[in-house]
Design a protein around this nucleic acid. Structure first.
Length: 427
RNA sequence: GGUCAGGUGUCCGAGUGGUUGAAGGAGCACGCCUGGAAAGCGUGUAUACGUUCAUAGCGUAUCGAGGGUUCGAAUCCCUCCCUGACCGCCA
């Protein structure tokens, strides 16, 4: 959510920056609602103050045993008007809030303008795509060679966009998770957290998935309103919801491994082959809660923490900064890390690292108290995948493939796989 | 899942319709006292929103959440959530 004061005082400038990300803010509608709200709120609060005074007087009068009917009549005289105002104001504030909850974040000044991913800007590359004598296979074909990657069985169990993994591949996925967590805990100073995979609507509102993107989520049936998490960002960031943290506790850095569940509504037909786009996938997430002045430095750091995993795995990648039109709803600035996939002959997203500034914090009322200050201040929140485990497994398979269809195990993973050096081709 | 008991400020804890945003205590901050410290004494100590140049004043709301009764609700009624105890079940 944007700062309501910014919206009130700088509507034109806000609308202008939002246009750069393809969002048309209805200035007239907002202004009209806001004008009404202001008048009505002032009137309502004045009437409430009046009632409060009078009610107190009635109390005093009755305590003294005096007749209070005169004051009572006075309150009754404007009682209806008050009720009317209160109801109208509540309706108006709901409307205004819904409007505000639907407005995306303002891009940071360093974000390149643009309409689509074609306008994203490459920041740096690391490593070089491997060259082979043979024609590289993609991970689906490699899966058939080494065995243990089964989409047919998954379709029987659940449907499309699911996978059953077994044997060394299943173990390698687990090894990746361990490598990632151990690196972030041991080398990057994150605290591991275990969190619920089912969350309530308030949490999803806090991070920005609701109210606008409900169709991307899996919602449980039943008397309680619960959703499957689309990313650990939701439960982990919401740890700070409705909290006031001490300045000396900042920054907070959390890492969590969770499965993620996405309906992929609207992505029909894209990446139908293989494990790139699944309804369920594993991810190790990084979340940082920081002081506002530290958030852009933190974004660079956090992106580096995600890159470190790819470097350990010796996987070629590049970092791109998303243009204004390609960013997610809540982000002020996002770096995507794209790993080289030989099977597709291109770089594909494997991580997305964002600074949300105070956008999520305002929705969540996640604050801290600067030392010596009476006033609370909104935190800045950041998160990034480090990494998307399923896609990382795909990247390892494809980049480490051998002419005979076997897959070498990256050095960094061997300790987690009982020293296994190669997954042999069996077919 | 069942029965019972509860959810009040940073914490403990009072408060069953009326000058209650909320007694009292602890903690914390500042001041006094002291050679210094402790003790003691004094003062202060929630959040959000609105108004506003203002994090100054003023106003409104908030005692788990939402609704209701009332001139007036922490206190009464309804629904839900959470916590604890016991029973059942279970990884």
């Amino acid at each position: 959510m944007l700062d309501p004061k910014l919206l009130r005082n700088d509507l034109d400038a806000v609308a202008e920056s939002l246009r750069s990300r393809g969002f048309e803010l209805d200035k007239g509608a907002f202004q009209a609602l806001e004008d009404k709200r202001k008048a009505l709120q002032v009137e309502t609060e004045n009437l409430q103050a009046e009632r409060k005074r009078k009610s107190k007087e009635i109390g005093i009068a009755k305590a003294k045993g005096e007749d209070a009917s005169a004051i009572l009549a006075e309150v009754e005289a404007f009682g209806d008007r008050l009720t009317e105002c209160e109801q109208a104001l509540a309706a108006l504030q709901t409307e205004l809030r819904e409007l505000q909850l639907g407005i995306p974040n303002i891009p940071h000044e360093s974000v390149p303008p643009g309409d689509s991913e074609d306008d994203n800007r490459e920041i740096r590359t690391w490593g070089t795509p491997p060259q082979w004598e043979f024609e590289p296979l993609d991970h689906v074909d490699l899966g058939s060679k080494v065995g243990g990657l089964d989409f047919e069985t998954a379709a029987k169990l659940s449907g499309s966009r699911f996978a059953v993994m077994s044997g060394p591949l299943a173990r390698m996925q687990r090894a990746l998770i361990q490598l990632m967590l151990d690196t972030h805990i041991g080398e990057h100073d994150y605290r591991e957290v275990y969190v619920p995979y089912l969350v309530n609507p308030d949490s999803l509102l806090g991070t920005g998935q609701l109210p606008k993107f409900e169709e991307d989520l899996y919602k449980l049936r039943g008397e309680r309103e619960l959703y499957l998490i689309p990313t650990a960002e939701v439960p982990v960031t919401n740890i700070a919801r409705d909290e006031i943290l001490n300045e000396e506790d900042l920054p907070l850095r959390f890492t969590a491994h969770t499965p993620c569940f996405r309906s992929e509504a609207g992505s029909g037909g894209r990446d139908v082959r293989g494990m790139i786009r699944q309804h369920q996938f594993e991810k190790v997430e990084l979340v940082q809660l920081v002081k506002p002045e530290a958030s852009y430095e933190a974004l660079e750091q956090l992106t580096g923490h995600a890159e470190a995993i790819l470097q350990k795995l010796q996987l070629p990648y590049r970092v791109v900064v998303l243009c204004s039109g390609d960013m997610g709803f809540s982000a002020a600035k996002t770096y995507d890390i794209e790993v080289w996939l030989p099977g597709q002959g291109k770089y594909r997203e494997i991580s997305s690292c964002s600074n949300f500034e105070d956008f999520q914090a305002r929705r969540m009322q996640a604050r801290y108290r600067p030392q010596g200050s009476k006033k609370t201040e909104l935190l800045h929140t950041l998160n990034g995948s480090a990494l998307a485990v399923g896609r990382c497994l795909v990247a390892v398979m494809e980049n480490y493939q051998q002419a005979d269809g076997s897959i070498l195990v990256p050095e960094a993973l061997r300790p987690y796989m009982g020293g296994l050096e190669r997954i042999p081709a069996t077919a």
